[in-house]
């Protein structure tokens, strides 16, 4: 069965189905992370004492990860521009860089986590660390998910470029929107968990 409106806009919504689908999904993601951010606000404002976050966590590593994720957000939109211009070689370069960025982010995150565990700092230590591991853990899972999709679109998925370039371009756009959202979540997590 053919999936309808993958490339041409649906008359009633004015958007392609993947486009409206990803925005509805991202809206639900905003509520998911919003509920965790509001839990953070409630627990922190109601707490008698709160640890000095920047003393517990590594600000330099988190700054590095912020830079990595922002650069990979730029490279995936450059990949989309390359596809739209029909430059499939440039697309593969930029998508490859995006994948490297996502992988580097996870490596840095793994260093951070293992350093905390080595110091005996775990989610059960206090409310702050429970929130830190929940929020960054959920975010890291989102990075893993994006990485899998981006790897597919960089590798075997690129075949669609020859059979249905319009639909392939739509896929890159949707994957990009998700990746930018993951970047935006980190843009808020960084100051809230590390700096304030």
């Amino acid at each position: 069965m053919e999936i309808p409106y993958t490339s041409e806009p649906r008359p009633d919504t004015g958007l392609t189905n993947p486009k409206i689908g990803i925005w509805l999904f991202l809206a639900s993601e905003v509520m998911l992370f919003g509920s965790l951010f509001s839990a953070y606000a409630l627990l922190r404002m109601g707490a008698e004492t709160w640890p000095d976050q920047s003393a517990v966590l590594s600000v330099p590593l988190a700054t590095l990860n912020t830079v990595i994720l922002i650069v990979s957000s730029a490279t995936i939109v450059l990949a989309l521009a390359a596809v739209r211009a029909g430059r499939i070689d440039a697309y593969r370069r930029f998508m490859g860089l995006t994948i490297l960025g996502g992988a580097a982010f996870l490596v840095v995150k793994a260093f951070e986590y293992s350093d905390k565990f080595a110091q005996g700092l775990v989610p059960a230590t206090d409310n702050f660390l429970a929130l830190y591991f929940t929020l960054t853990g959920l975010h890291a899972l989102h990075v893993v998910g994006g990485l899998v999709v981006n790897l597919y679109l960089w590798g075997p998925g690129v075949r669609m470029w020859r059979t249905d370039p319009a639909r392939f371009t739509g896929r890159i756009e949707v994957a990009g929107l998700y990746w930018h959202f993951v970047d935006v979540v980190w843009i808020f997590l960084f100051p809230v968990l590390y700096l304030l």
Binding site: S73, G176, H180, D183, V184, I187, P191, V192
Partner: peptide, 20 residues
């Protein structure tokens, strides 16, 4: 807190407006 959240919102707005 106000400044940190304002700068973060500005960055998020840039990503949303241009990249997205």
């Amino acid at each position: 807190v106000a400044l940190a959240l304002a700068v973060a919102s500005l960055k998020a707005a840039l990503v949303a407006a241009v990249f997205m």
